[in-house]
Amino acid sequence: MDTVIQSLGLTVAYGSQRAIDNVTVSFPERQITAIIGPSGCGKSTLLRSLCRLVELTDGVEIWGRVIFDSEDIYAPGVDVTDVRKRIGLLAQRPYPLPMSIYENVAYGPRIYGIRQRSALDELVEKELQAAGLWEEVRHRLNEPASALSIGQQQRLCLARGLAVEPEVLLCDEVTSSLDPLSTQRIESRLIELKQQYSIILVTHVLRQARHLADYVVFMYMGELIEHGPSEEFFANPKHEKTRAYLAGEFY
């Protein structure tokens, strides 16, 4: 099992409060890793620090290293936009950009210098297909993205993220605001996408973790408690906190 991204002693604090404390963990390549744990335990913080989005928050402090492609993404001199391009993040609440459906998907590629209309057309279709949205929007590509339903918006955000061809896809409770059908659609896309991408998925739905994950990371109160291959993790949890959590003793 190859490692795609690895955190070493990663600690993130908002002001004086540590949201994650000394987290060292390796995420496997081209698999789905689920980060689980009760709400407020630092799952989102961990995810957002893996792509350097966490530093956009005011007053945040970060220690430790994150190794990606054998380099520390927090090392001085690293191009942060390049990190964010290669490690994509899909947020909990879908935020389409204030432009058309087409422009949303073309947003990233345009930034990276793709100007040719035919190339963009092709890319937009391909990524909307990959996100499972193409059939629904193919005749209304020029309509504002704000007109889509929330489930469609989340898939549009997925397409937008895929369009810059990231290597890692971080998903932060991406189905928590969606209806069951939309959830199912996103889940089936993720399973398909793991052929090409390494996916790290935050979820507090255990069923989803069981269903999707190859590898599971369990966090509690900002600390990494236990991690391991999915089957082993669920069949044979070692830590008592994990057992209690899996038994539904706290959420």
């Binding site: 792509c51 989005l53 956009l56 936009t81 390049d82 964010r84 391009k85 994509g88 993040l89 899909l90 947020a91 609440r93 935020y95 389409p96 950009l97 204030p98 947003y107 990233g108 930034i111 990276y112 955000c157 937008r160 993220g161 369009a163 810059v164």
Partner: peptide
């Protein structure tokens, strides 16, 4: 979150 969505693709 909207600004973040833009930063997330490397803008």
């Amino acid at each position: 979150g909207l600004k973040e969505a833009s930063h997330a693709v490397g803008a």
